[in-house]
Amino acid sequence: MDWVNKCNEPDKLRLGMMNAWRLNKMAEHKLMFIRLNKLINKDPDNQIEQEFYYMLEVYEQLLTNKYKRKTIAIRTRKMLKTKSVMQCMEYWAKLNAKTNGFKLLNECGFADLTIESIIQRHSNAFSIHLVDKTYFRLLTSINHTSCTLK
Protein backbone atom coordinates (compact mmCIF):
# COMPACT_ATOMS: atom_id res chain seq x y z
CA MET A 1 0.00 0.00 0.00
CA ASP A 2 3.06 2.26 -0.27
CA TRP A 3 1.78 3.58 -3.60
CA VAL A 4 -1.19 5.19 -1.84
CA ASN A 5 1.00 7.63 0.12
CA LYS A 6 2.88 8.58 -3.06
CA CYS A 7 -0.15 8.87 -5.33
CA ASN A 8 -1.12 12.40 -6.38
CA GLU A 9 -3.86 11.39 -8.82
CA PRO A 10 -7.39 11.46 -7.39
CA ASP A 11 -8.78 9.28 -10.19
CA LYS A 12 -6.31 6.46 -9.44
CA LEU A 13 -7.21 6.64 -5.76
CA ARG A 14 -10.93 6.51 -6.56
CA LEU A 15 -10.38 3.46 -8.76
CA GLY A 16 -8.36 1.82 -6.00
CA MET A 17 -11.15 2.58 -3.54
CA MET A 18 -13.71 0.94 -5.82
CA ASN A 19 -11.55 -2.16 -6.12
CA ALA A 20 -10.89 -2.31 -2.38
CA TRP A 21 -14.63 -2.03 -1.72
CA ARG A 22 -15.40 -4.77 -4.22
CA LEU A 23 -12.84 -7.04 -2.53
CA ASN A 24 -14.14 -6.08 0.95
CA LYS A 25 -10.76 -4.61 1.97
CA MET A 26 -12.12 -1.82 4.14
CA ALA A 27 -8.80 -0.89 5.79
CA GLU A 28 -7.22 -0.29 2.36
CA HIS A 29 -10.36 1.56 1.24
CA LYS A 30 -10.02 3.93 4.20
CA LEU A 31 -6.30 4.52 3.60
CA MET A 32 -7.02 5.51 0.00
CA PHE A 33 -9.85 7.76 1.12
CA ILE A 34 -7.59 9.53 3.64
CA ARG A 35 -5.01 10.15 0.91
CA LEU A 36 -7.69 11.37 -1.49
CA ASN A 37 -9.07 13.64 1.22
CA LYS A 38 -5.63 15.19 1.72
CA LEU A 39 -5.40 15.91 -1.99
CA ILE A 40 -8.81 17.50 -2.49
CA ASN A 41 -9.96 18.84 0.90
CA LYS A 42 -9.23 22.41 1.97
CA ASP A 43 -8.69 21.33 5.58
CA PRO A 44 -7.41 17.74 5.47
CA ASP A 45 -6.27 17.86 9.09
CA ASN A 46 -9.79 18.41 10.46
CA GLN A 47 -10.45 14.96 11.90
CA ILE A 48 -14.21 15.46 12.32
CA GLU A 49 -14.67 16.51 8.69
CA GLN A 50 -12.43 13.69 7.50
CA GLU A 51 -14.53 11.13 9.38
CA PHE A 52 -17.75 12.74 8.16
CA TYR A 53 -16.73 12.60 4.51
CA TYR A 54 -15.54 9.01 4.89
CA MET A 55 -18.95 8.15 6.37
CA LEU A 56 -20.60 9.88 3.42
CA GLU A 57 -18.43 7.93 0.96
CA VAL A 58 -19.37 4.62 2.57
CA TYR A 59 -23.05 5.60 2.83
CA GLU A 60 -23.21 6.45 -0.87
CA GLN A 61 -21.53 3.16 -1.73
CA LEU A 62 -24.11 1.31 0.36
CA LEU A 63 -26.89 3.21 -1.44
CA THR A 64 -25.32 2.30 -4.78
CA ASN A 65 -25.24 -1.36 -3.77
CA LYS A 66 -28.82 -1.22 -2.50
CA TYR A 67 -30.27 0.38 -5.65
CA LYS A 68 -27.84 -1.29 -8.08
CA ARG A 69 -26.90 2.04 -9.70
CA LYS A 70 -24.67 4.97 -8.76
CA THR A 71 -26.52 6.76 -5.97
CA ILE A 72 -25.56 10.03 -4.31
CA ALA A 73 -26.91 11.31 -0.99
CA ILE A 74 -28.52 14.29 -2.68
CA ARG A 75 -30.22 15.80 0.38
CA THR A 76 -27.02 15.52 2.41
CA ARG A 77 -24.91 17.17 -0.28
CA LYS A 78 -27.53 19.89 -0.76
CA MET A 79 -27.46 20.70 2.96
CA LEU A 80 -23.65 20.81 2.89
CA LYS A 81 -23.85 23.64 0.35
CA THR A 82 -25.55 25.91 2.88
CA LYS A 83 -24.26 24.61 6.23
CA SER A 84 -20.94 23.48 7.65
CA VAL A 85 -20.23 19.83 8.43
CA MET A 86 -20.60 20.58 12.16
CA GLN A 87 -23.98 22.27 11.65
CA CYS A 88 -25.24 19.35 9.57
CA MET A 89 -24.06 16.81 12.13
CA GLU A 90 -25.71 18.71 14.97
CA TYR A 91 -28.96 19.02 13.01
CA TRP A 92 -29.17 15.29 12.23
CA ALA A 93 -28.12 14.27 15.72
CA LYS A 94 -30.85 16.44 17.29
CA LEU A 95 -33.61 14.72 15.32
CA ASN A 96 -35.82 12.44 17.39
CA ALA A 97 -36.03 9.82 14.65
CA LYS A 98 -33.08 7.84 13.35
CA THR A 99 -31.93 9.06 9.94
CA ASN A 100 -31.87 6.80 6.90
CA GLY A 101 -28.10 7.06 6.95
CA PHE A 102 -27.90 5.90 10.55
CA LYS A 103 -30.21 2.97 9.84
CA LEU A 104 -28.38 1.80 6.70
CA LEU A 105 -24.88 2.19 8.16
CA ASN A 106 -25.94 0.36 11.32
CA GLU A 107 -27.70 -2.45 9.44
CA CYS A 108 -24.63 -3.01 7.28
CA GLY A 109 -22.20 -3.18 10.18
CA PHE A 110 -20.84 0.36 9.99
CA ALA A 111 -22.23 1.72 13.27
CA ASP A 112 -18.78 3.11 14.04
CA LEU A 113 -19.09 5.46 11.03
CA THR A 114 -22.44 7.03 11.98
CA ILE A 115 -22.68 10.69 12.91
CA GLU A 116 -23.57 9.54 16.41
CA SER A 117 -20.30 7.61 16.67
CA ILE A 118 -18.30 10.52 15.29
CA ILE A 119 -19.86 12.78 17.93
CA GLN A 120 -18.95 10.26 20.64
CA ARG A 121 -15.31 10.15 19.48
CA HIS A 122 -15.11 13.96 19.42
CA SER A 123 -17.39 14.72 22.34
CA ASN A 124 -15.35 17.75 23.39
CA ALA A 125 -16.49 19.55 20.19
CA PHE A 126 -20.22 19.13 20.93
CA SER A 127 -22.68 20.03 23.68
CA ILE A 128 -23.15 17.55 26.52
CA HIS A 129 -26.85 17.28 25.60
CA LEU A 130 -25.96 16.20 22.05
CA VAL A 131 -23.32 13.76 23.29
CA ASP A 132 -25.85 12.19 25.67
CA LYS A 133 -28.55 11.98 22.99
CA THR A 134 -26.25 10.29 20.49
CA TYR A 135 -24.94 7.92 23.14
CA PHE A 136 -28.48 6.82 23.95
CA ARG A 137 -29.29 6.36 20.24
CA LEU A 138 -26.23 4.17 19.76
CA LEU A 139 -26.98 2.23 22.93
CA THR A 140 -30.53 1.41 21.84
CA SER A 141 -29.66 0.43 18.27
CA ILE A 142 -29.26 -3.12 17.11
CA ASN A 143 -26.63 -4.01 14.53
CA HIS A 144 -28.42 -6.34 12.10
CA THR A 145 -25.68 -6.79 9.49
CA SER A 146 -28.32 -7.77 6.98
CA CYS A 147 -26.87 -6.21 3.85
CA THR A 148 -24.05 -7.12 1.54
CA LEU A 149 -21.09 -4.97 0.61
CA LYS A 150 -20.93 -6.02 -3.03
Results as ranks from 00 to 15, higher is better:
residue 30 K to A: 03
residue 31 L to V: 09
residue 31 L to K: 15
residue 31 L to C: 07
residue 32 M to G: 01
residue 33 F to A: 00
residue 34 I to G: 09
residue 36 L to I: 01
residue 37 N to D: 13
residue 37 N to K: 14
residue 40 I to R: 14
residue 40 I to W: 03
residue 40 I to N: 05
residue 41 N to Y: 13
residue 42 K to R: 11
residue 42 K to G: 08
residue 43 D to N: 10
residue 43 D to T: 10
residue 44 P to L: 12
residue 44 P to D: 08
residue 44 P to M: 01
residue 45 D to A: 10
residue 45 D to M: 12
residue 45 D to T: 14
residue 46 N to W: 03
residue 47 Q to N: 13
residue 49 E to L: 04
residue 49 E to K: 14
residue 49 E to I: 07
residue 50 Q to R: 13
residue 50 Q to A: 07
residue 50 Q to V: 06
residue 51 E to T: 01
residue 53 Y to S: 12
residue 53 Y to H: 06
residue 54 Y to I: 03
residue 54 Y to E: 02
residue 55 M to T: 03
residue 55 M to A: 05
residue 55 M to Q: 12
residue 57 E to C: 02
residue 58 V to T: 04
residue 58 V to H: 01
residue 58 V to W: 08
residue 59 Y to S: 05
residue 59 Y to N: 01
residue 60 E to F: 01
residue 60 E to M: 07
residue 60 E to T: 04
residue 60 E to S: 02
residue 60 E to N: 06
residue 60 E to G: 02
residue 62 L to H: 02
residue 63 L to N: 14
residue 63 L to W: 12
residue 63 L to P: 06
residue 64 T to A: 05
residue 65 N to K: 09
residue 65 N to L: 13
residue 66 K to W: 10
residue 67 Y to F: 12
residue 70 K to I: 08
residue 70 K to L: 13
residue 70 K to N: 15
residue 71 T to A: 07
residue 71 T to M: 03
residue 72 I to P: 00
residue 73 A to V: 10
residue 74 I to Q: 10
residue 74 I to M: 08
residue 75 R to Q: 11
residue 75 R to A: 11
residue 75 R to D: 14
residue 76 T to G: 04
residue 76 T to I: 12
residue 77 R to E: 09
residue 77 R to Y: 02
residue 78 K to R: 12
residue 79 M to Q: 12
residue 80 L to A: 11
residue 81 K to I: 07
residue 82 T to Q: 13
residue 83 K to H: 14
residue 84 S to V: 03
residue 84 S to W: 09
residue 85 V to D: 09
residue 85 V to K: 05
residue 85 V to H: 06
residue 86 M to T: 11
residue 88 C to G: 08
residue 90 E to Q: 08
residue 90 E to V: 07
residue 91 Y to G: 10
residue 91 Y to M: 14
residue 93 A to I: 06
residue 93 A to D: 06
residue 94 K to P: 00
residue 94 K to H: 07
residue 95 L to Y: 12
residue 96 N to M: 08
residue 97 A to G: 10
residue 97 A to R: 15
residue 98 K to Y: 14
residue 98 K to E: 09
residue 99 T to F: 04
residue 99 T to V: 05
residue 100 N to T: 10
residue 101 G to V: 03
residue 101 G to M: 01
residue 102 F to N: 11
residue 104 L to S: 02
residue 104 L to C: 03
residue 104 L to T: 15
residue 105 L to V: 06
residue 105 L to Q: 03
residue 105 L to R: 09
residue 106 N to F: 10
residue 106 N to Q: 04
residue 107 E to R: 15
residue 108 C to T: 14
residue 108 C to E: 07
residue 109 G to E: 05
residue 109 G to H: 07
residue 110 F to E: 03
residue 110 F to Q: 04
residue 110 F to L: 05
residue 111 A to F: 11
residue 111 A to Q: 12
residue 112 D to C: 06
residue 112 D to K: 12
residue 115 I to F: 05
residue 115 I to P: 00
residue 116 E to H: 13
residue 116 E to R: 13
residue 116 E to S: 09
residue 116 E to A: 09
residue 117 S to D: 04
residue 117 S to Y: 03
residue 118 I to C: 00
residue 119 I to N: 02
residue 120 Q to P: 00
residue 120 Q to C: 00
residue 120 Q to R: 11
residue 121 R to L: 04
residue 121 R to F: 06
residue 121 R to N: 10
residue 122 H to F: 05
residue 123 S to N: 04
residue 124 N to C: 07
residue 125 A to T: 11
residue 125 A to G: 04
residue 125 A to R: 14
residue 127 S to Y: 01
residue 127 S to I: 05
residue 128 I to V: 15
residue 129 H to S: 12
residue 131 V to I: 08
residue 132 D to R: 13
residue 133 K to F: 02
residue 133 K to T: 09
